[in-house]
Nucleic acid binder design. Structure first.
Lengths: 197, 197, 197, 197
DNA sequence: GACTAACCGAGACGGTACGTCCCGTCTTAAG
DNA sequence: CTTAAGACGGGACGTACCGTCTCGGTTAGTC
């Protein structure tokens, strides 16, 4: 999280152990996949990673922060921008890719992070800034370009549009009342862009 | 949750104490308001309610179940069906009422319940059935009638429409990146029903 | 302890810092007075003295060794030999002086050192040699002279006599069941030398 | 320590587990013999005794308190009063018995307790009352009777006499500069009662 | 009106994890 | 070659809750 591994202006002292950092992140990732986010404990990570607990607390303030970092490494490649084309098509492609990654360990992890944000206000702020807003941006860009190209009305509120799209995703992810499949991606776009499609 | 207060087919013995049940729910509600969902503990409820821990475990399987029951008592009246009128208007009124209740203790509680559902699969199933689906129903009804009245295209997928609407709500509630205010309610409806408004 | 401050046969390199040594001993003394021996930590000394932990470990093997050195500096002047006179009088004067120094920080430190010796056999050996035996010597000398002068029977076992005198002191110091005051000094001498006084 | 195992006026609740209490004391005793007092940890006792840490903390405030209780069970029989006879003889017999028990595990334990008393003022008070004073009493009684019988001068200060005797014992026990053997017992008595022996 | 079964409060139990402190060792750059 | 700095693996600390258990004591029905 504030895991500044770059030496920065540091002048003296033993440098931070890369081995420890990697072991912690890898172990956290492994355990969260195996046992689920809520069964993950800092004690457990330390034990399995062969690392002292204080080493973890020195660098991460909470379980959520560790898992967030682990996830960044795990799925570091940003979602690819969809190829040029009609907005509806771009959105659909983009959503299908997104949903695919969420139908696996990533989905489970992301659900856990959102749950953690409900119980830890400090992590919530971090999560909002570093996850929610970061992931919203490409979608907003896509929408803005759609507006510019005249595929959406000039007065479209792209923020609300983004809330509708990402909202549907989170809702299905968290409530698990329906799958995040290709049909879902298609239907969302079709419903939102009905009269433009 | 399985809070079967009716004696059922039980034959004899001391009946369940109403006092204990009420004390537990009231205390849970008070504590969750005071300290937040994640600070709530069964131990704490028992202590403050003057009740033995086993009495709680006898009747509720988890913290989430208690809070769910407490919430049902607290806000038992269902959201009133909006008066007849154009769908866009009905939706907007309905959303505004809904958002108003979520900007308070109820919002905090509901966030906690959703977070709890991420960590407890048993509670998740219960929550989905008794909360998610139950709350979706009135919205679906509203949408179906809109379709019937020709205010929405015949082939509108009301399920996806509900996902978009409720999704936006949950997304803002959980990510807290923007408020659930009257403008939000208005914008959601306007964006979704753009060409019909 | 093995605080060999003389450069010895060392050949080159940065010489040992006098500043560090003095800072460590002074800080240790200050902290042990402020917080007590058992609250003293090497980490704390390093922090307060502005010194690296390894610097401490390089020169002292244990907490006890540091405090011992600090005490030596603090109360370096040996107890003055009492003026000539009857043995009983000499002993009483000597004990009164001794007890006075023990009713203060020195007492607390010495108690801590003895406690430390119970848990660290290496320090125990050092403490026995450098403290216990060193402090016994003047008393034994006094007793030997008393015997020589005929104030004690020829066959007096001065070792046991020293055990009785120092034993009473340690016992009161450690068990704290009675004060180490002037009356105590007087009574010890009177009781031991009853028929000679 | 306040280990009131008797039910007392208790009215409700699961009764204290005798098994747990015995396992804790037995394990503590075993470990203190094996590893020494300072290597003993509450965590270790809990682990080896198959007991939860909180169960220990519920009943004993500190490591010292546990070991004290364990010692009481281990060596519960009081030192037998020596048979009638001349005071010197009684004292010598009594001391020899006492020293014998201290040349073994008991001595190690008692040393640890005294060291613990130096670092924990609460335990120190307890130890003084329940150990120091309790053990002094029989010695004082012996001395009083000696005075009554005229074997010691009427104005003998039995408290100081007790300090000398017990002091020598503690001094040798803690400083380990000389053994607590039969010769020592004999010499102490002979030196103290020189002109009466 | 006694019986009796299920309930109640209380609270101890074996556990697990928490987050902190300090240990003694190590690895740096600076002097 | 020492120093200040500070990270490291490790281990114990004392606390909070977990969910289970075992009590003695109510409290209705049912016999």
């Amino acid at each position: 999280m504030p895991t500044d591994t770059s030496a920065g202006g540091r002048s003296a002292g033993r440098p931070r152990s890369t081995r420890a950092r990697q072991a912690i992140l890898a172990t956290a990732l492994r355990l969260v996949k195996q046992e689920g986010f809520s069964a993950l404990t800092i004690e457990g990570i330390a034990r399995e990673a062969g690392v002292g607990k204080p080493t973890i607390y020195r660098w991460w303030p909470s379980k959520g922060a560790i898992v967030f970092d682990a996830l960044q490494q795990y799925a570091q490649q940003a979602l690819p921008t969809p190829p040029d084309g009609p907005l509806a098509e771009q959105l659909e492609v983009w959503l299908k890719t997104l949903f695919k990654t969420l139908n696996g360990d990533t989905g489970e992890i992301v659900r856990g992070l959102m749950a953690e944000a409900q119980r830890d206000p400090v992590f919530a702020a971090f999560f909002r800034t570093e996850f929610i807003f970061v992931r919203r941006q490409p979608l907003l860009t896509l929408l803005h370009e759609g507006i510019r190209r005249g595929e959406l009305p000039d007065d479209t509120d792209s923020e609300v549009m983004a809330d509708l799209i990402y909202g549907a995703m989170w809702y299905r992810l968290l409530a698990q009342h329906a799958p995040l499949d290709e049909k879902c991606a298609h239907d969302i776009v079709r419903t939102l862009l009905y009269n433009y499609a």
